[in-house]
């Protein structure tokens, strides 16, 4: 077995027993169950779930990722003194965190959904998209957390930056976009807005999901342009490519620093 796979195996043993991990899965389980029980029709349930997923997954992934890496520092030192390449340690630790976090979310959401018969309903595709988007966001924000916590020795600084980055993408970014629209309202901004939304992973996920619902009509001309772009195959492929870039770029920059880092 390859070094990465060995480290992954033991990371899984460790992370899956963490009480935070179990709480995280339980949170999604209870949330989904509650929404189905009290939330009315299924498409409304998915919409509410989406609003929570888009905030919670990035927050938990980036905070948990940062703390976990700081916490495993001495263990990584122990691994580094063994005959394994640094690269393999990095990938082992990353996948050992991103995979169980994704699994917690997927299981937590899908068990109640299946119990309420989502797989036989019209909304199955929408729920599928939501789960894929959630998994992407987990991989992206764990990657971002790694590229931060490897760069900064100071735990407080690293954690602060992580939370700031989450705040920027989850909350501030939309405000900035609104200011842009307000300021340059006299110009045709629709196409530029598509570009702007591709620069924020949470926005990509949100747009992809929202356009599955028939509410884009409420968003006027911009909504129509967005709908034309994101609902078509090209738009879909471009969004997925951008989501992958959002996983890849922080990961590879993190791995490069990890290779040169002093422990």
């Amino acid at each position: 077995m390859d070094g990465t796979a060995k480290i992954l195996k033991f990371e899984l043993q460790d992370v899956l027993r963490s009480k935070w991990m179990i709480l995280y899965a339980l949170f999604f389980l209870l949330l989904t169950e509650g929404l189905f029980r009290f939330g009315g029709n299924q498409s409304k349930v998915i919409l509410s779930l989406m609003n929570i997923v888009l905030i919670i997954i990035p927050l938990v992934s980036i905070v948990f990722g940062t703390m976990y890496l700081y916490h495993s520092r001495e263990f990584i030192e122990l691994l580094l003194s063994q005959p394994i390449e640094r690269k393999k340690i990095f990938w082992g630790v990353y996948s050992g965190l991103a995979i169980p976090l994704s699994a917690g979310f997927v299981l937590g959401v899908s068990i109640p959904s299946l119990m309420y018969g989502i797989h036989t309903s019209q909304e199955a595709g929408m729920m599928g998209m939501l789960i894929v988007a959630g998994v992407f966001l987990t991989f992206i924000f764990v990657a971002l957390s790694f590229s931060i916590s490897i760069r900064y020795e100071d735990r407080l600084k690293g954690l602060g930056l992580s939370i700031l980055l989450w705040f920027f993408f989850a909350i501030m970014y939309d405000g900035i976009v609104l200011i842009l629209i307000y300021t340059f309202g006299d110009y045709p901004l629709e196409k530029a807005m598509i570009g702007v939304s591709l620069l924020n992973p949470i926005d990509i996920a949100r747009t992809l999901l929202l356009l599955q619902f028939d509410i884009s009509a409420l968003m006027g001309y911009t909504g129509a342009v967005f709908h034309k772009f994101f609902a078509g195959w090209t738009g879909m492929i471009i969004s997925v490519v951008f989501l992958m870039l959002w996983v890849g770029i922080p990961l590879f920059s993190g791995q490069r620093i990890f290779n040169r880092k002093d422990f």
């Binding site: 077995m1 070094g3 060995k6 480290i7 033991f10 990371e11 043993q13 460790d14 992370v15 027993r17 963490s18 916490h71 495993s72 001495e74 263990f75 030192e77 122990l78 691994l79 003194s81 063994q82 005959p83 394994i84």
Partner: peptide, 22 residues
């Protein structure tokens, strides 16, 4: 090493098993 913290939730036999496996 001077000091070491190991993964919190592993048992000692699993830790030793891992190092041997590596």
């Amino acid at each position: 090493p001077q000091s070491a913290r190991f993964p919190e939730n592993l048992k000692l036999d699993e830790l030793i098993g891992m190092i041997k496996d590596l």
